[in-house]
Amino acid sequence: MTVPASRVRRRPRTPGRLLPLLLATVLLLPVAFLVIQAYRFVDADRDAVEREQLGVEYLRALGPVTEALVNAQSAAVSGHPLPRENLDRAVEQAAAVDARTGDELRTSERWAGIRAKLEALPERSLTDPEDAFNAYGEVTDLLLALYGKVRETSGLIRDPDVDTYFLQDGVGEEMPEALIAAGRLTDLVILIEQRPAADQGRSLMELATLRFAALQPARDLVNNLRAVVESSENAELGANVLNPFDAYQRAVEAMALLALPNRSGAVDTEGLTGARKQAQQAAKQLQPVLLDEIDRLLADRIDRLNRDALLVLGAGSLAVLLLISLAVSSWLSRTQDSPTAIDQPSIGTEPVESDRPTGDRWEPVALRPAGEQTPALQPAGQGREPDRWRPFDAAR
Score class of each variant (00 low, 15 high):
Pro15Leu: 12
Pro15Ser: 10
Gly16Gln: 09
Arg17Tyr: 01
Leu19Ala: 15
Pro20Asp: 08
Thr25Tyr: 06
Leu27His: 03
Pro30Arg: 05
Val35Ile: 01
Phe41Val: 14
Asp47Ser: 07
Arg51Ile: 10
Val56Pro: 08
Leu62Asn: 02
Pro64Glu: 05
Glu67Ile: 10
Ala72Lys: 02
Gln73Asn: 06
Arg84Thr: 13
Leu87Cys: 07
Ala90Ile: 06
Val91Thr: 14
Ala99Glu: 14
Thr107Glu: 02
Arg110Ser: 14
Ala116Asn: 09
Leu118Met: 15
Glu119Ala: 15
Ala132Asp: 08
Ala135Leu: 14
Glu138Lys: 06
Thr140Arg: 04
Glu152Ala: 13
Asp159Asn: 15
Pro160Val: 06
Gln168Asp: 10
Gly170Tyr: 02
Glu173Cys: 00
Pro176Trp: 03
Thr186Asp: 06
Leu191Gly: 01
Ala197Glu: 15
Asp199His: 05
Gly201Tyr: 00
Ala208Trp: 10
Asp220Cys: 00
Val222Thr: 13
Asn224Met: 03
Glu233Gln: 11
Glu233Lys: 07
Asn234Glu: 13
Ala235Pro: 03
Ala235Gln: 12
Ala235Ser: 11
Val241Cys: 01
Leu242Gly: 01
Gln249Ser: 15
Ala254Asn: 14
Ala254Glu: 13
Leu257Ala: 11
Ala275Cys: 05
Gln278Tyr: 04
Leu286Trp: 04
Ala299Asp: 08
Ile302Val: 14
Arg304Leu: 13
Asp308Gln: 09
Ala319Arg: 08
Val328Trp: 08
Ser333Val: 12
Arg334Asn: 05
Thr335Asp: 10
Asp337Glu: 15
Pro339Gln: 10
Gln344Thr: 13
Leu367Tyr: 03
Gln373Gly: 02
Pro379Gly: 01
Pro386Ser: 10
Ala394Ser: 08
